[in-house]
Design a protein around this nucleic acid. Structure first.
Length: 588
RNA sequence: GGCCCUGUAGCUCAAUUGGUUAGAGUACCGGACUGUCGAUCCGGUGGUUGCGGGUUCGAGUCCCGUCGGGGUCGCCA
């Protein structure tokens, strides 16, 4: 080793020891006669000092050190004078009096300083990710990510799960997300697809009798990015045999309890609460409600149908809904201009307008209050349980739009009105998702989750009569408004699987062609099984308290899916394309 | 594909209604300084205002296009 200690471990007890440290120059403070350097590595910072009287040559060399130079120093640990102790760092009681200095690598002037107040813009940080990753925040993200994956592996190992790898080069299954394709050189004109998830393979592993499987699996989806979505991301993939939904939820509850306890010191109430999909949609307008605050949606249909406000009554006549929520204490805070901003905001979710009422002692104050009689105003206040000083917001539209708009509004108001502590964790399961959803555009049923979900046993008959009402044995884990895990009990009966394919209008031949290897697996003694997958990146993001997953991924991609560090994706040599029999056909 | 925000010195930002030579802090370079820890003090270098057009006597500022970054809707079985 080039060093005897790290920059984070020396204490008062080490005084008088001779040590050798290696690290990066974090700060330098040159007083001519004495030079202080904060030496940094992953473990911390240690102040080293160069006295003129100790050695003028070494001191001279030290005066030339700059940010991010890599050095190796040898010297004696000395206690700092009492009034010179630095409380901010763990090694603040000591310093190293350097007798030997070796510059291992002189750095160019770095593109930005690591802790200079405001962060540089993200483009620059991504381009110089090597430097950016030295920042304490990102070092901590990576360390927490490591501790989390370690905890996960230990937890599942303890519970009898086997970590088994599945292929990265797989077969394209053109349902679902867009695939990333990899051309085959050997099979001219054929392509592999990178896995969107190991879904089918883990089911096959259950058919093979491995009983309990887990994998920390990289997944790829060629879809547009978001703050919490990267084109390649990591799932904690889990599958179990001879289980019911309850068993899977219990195993994951245990993991969540251990995670929050170990990594955040939080004792989350267990078992995690559960809400049906239908109830979540009705009370929160969302299948991933943030439960750190209340502010539930209220149905105002009855009053809306009877009132004199045309927008409301006509919406009711045409089969729509009028729903609202109460923003507590918002009447003072929100000016008319800000409310106009909220109106535009819900417009993004399809809402044609946003009705609002300021609640006063004597009734409702609003541009549209005149359309509501005294009794109707009181009825609204009572139904919404609003208090003077609140604002009532309402959306009148098709059910789905009232949900989407009010759910988004709820999240925004919750955050703006500071209705929750951002450090809180609130986890719950959403269960009984609909199995199918009708695609108006293509006039057909599509799987809500994926085509392998087992229908709810009580709803099997509805498959024939009313497919839209069929509930799935599926479940999502929601954490602070993020979908943090998702899973289901799978179909292990080829006949039911075929019935689902029929509903999805996937013909037997087509099913055989696309998913034949799964169906084949199901034919040779498939056990009942089910599983779940947790979004690792999102979990780490939440555990770190960040709102974007790029900060917990060492080398993330931009919104246009490029890697600013390496320059991927890039053009390739014509020879490579020729070997793969690929010709480019670019627009213009 | 749509909508919104954004791009000025290495970095973070400023620049009045469109008005003279585009400023400040920090970094960097030079100088002073033996107890700093965001060291301090003095001086200096540093700019094709992302790029390309246009309007104007005059554009960082207004208009059009384009590229990059971010947020979001659609999309993500």
């Amino acid at each position: 080793m080039l060093r005897t200690h790290t920059c984070g471990e020396l204490r008062k007890e080490n005084v008088d020891q001779q040590v050798t440290l290696c690290g990066w120059v974090d700060k330098y403070r040159d007083h001519a006669g004495i030079v202080f350097i904060d030496l940094r590595d992953r473990y911390g910072k240690t102040q080293i000092k160069f006295n003129l009287e100790d050695s003028s040559d070494i001191q001279q060399l030290a005066r030339g050190l700059r940010h991010e130079d890599v050095v190796r120093v040898t010297g004696e640990i000395v206690a700092r004078p009492d009034d010179m102790i630095n409380q901010k760092i763990s090694t603040g009681e000591i310093e190293v009096r350097v007798s030997k200095l070796e510059i291992l690598n002189k750095s160019l002037t770095p593109p930005f300083l690591l802790d200079a107040g405001d962060l540089p813009n993200e483009e620059l940080r991504l381009k110089h990710r090597v430097v950016d990753l030295r920042r304490a925040e990102l070092q901590e993200s990576m360390m927490l990510r490591h501790r989390y994956t370690k905890l996960i592996r230990d937890y599942f190992d303890k519970h009898g799960f086997l970590d088994i790898e599945t292929p990265i080069l797989g077969r394209s299954t053109p349902e679902g997300a867009r695939d990333y394709l990899v051309p085959s050189r050997v099979h001219e004109g054929s392509f592999y697809a990178l896995p969107q998830s190991p879904q089918i393979f883990k089911q096959l592993l259950m058919c093979s009798g491995f009983d309990r499987y887990m994998q920390i699996a990289r997944c790829f989806r060629d879809e547009d990015l978001r703050a919490d979505r990267q084109p390649e991301f990591t799932q904690i993939d889990v599958e179990m045999t001879f289980v019911e939904q309850e068993d899977i939820l219990n195993v994951i509850d245990g993991l969540i309890a251990e995670t929050l306890k170990e990594l955040k010191g939080i004792d989350h109430p267990m078992p995690l609460p559960r809400l049906t999909h239908a109830e979540a949609m009705e009370r929160f307008g969302s299948d991933k409600p943030d439960m750190r605050f209340e502010m539930e949606l209220t149905d105002l249909g009855e009053i809306a149908a009877a009132c004199g406000f045309g927008v409301f009554s006509k919406t009711m006549e045409s089969g729509g809904r009028v729903r609202g929520l109460v923003a507590p204490g918002a009447a003072e805070k929100y000016t008319r201009k800000m409310i106009d901003g909220l109106t535009a905001f819900v417009g993004d979710y399809g809402a044609k307008g946003l009705a609002f009422f300021r609640v006063k002692e004597e009734g409702l104050d609003s541009p549209i209050a005149k359309f509501f009689s005294e009794e109707h105003q009181q009825a609204i206040i009572e139904k919404m349980q609003a208090k003077p000083g609140d604002i009532i917001f309402c959306v009148a539209d098709k059910n789905a739009i009232t949900s989407a708009a009010l759910a988004a509004l709820r999240n925004r108001l919750g955050s703006e009105l500071e209705l929750f502590d951002p450090k809180d964790f609130s986890c719950l399961w959403i269960v009984e998702f609909p199995l199918l959803q009708y695609d108006d555009e293509n006039k057909r049923w599509v799987a809500e989750h994926h085509p392998f979900c087992y229908p709810h046993p009580d709803d099997i008959e509805l498959l024939e009569t009313d497919p839209g009402k069929v509930r799935a044995q599926s479940y999502d884990l929601v954490v602070n408004g993020y979908e943090a895990a998702s899973g289901s009990i799978r179909i292990h009966d080829p006949a039911i699987q075929q019935k689902i394919f029929d509903l999805l209008e996937i013909s037997a031949e087509e099913a055989e062609q696309r998913f034949g290897f799964l169906l084949e697996g199901l034919r040779y003694g498939a056990p009942p099984h089910g599983g779940v997958a947790l979004g690792l990146d999102r979990w780490v993001m939440l555990l770190c308290g960040y709102d974007n997953i790029r900060d917990v991924i060492a080398f993330p991609k931009t919104q246009k899916a490029s890697d600013l560090l390496s320059g991927a994706p890039s053009n390739v040599d014509g020879k490579q394309l020729k070997e793969l029999h690929i010709q480019l056909d670019l627009p213009d």
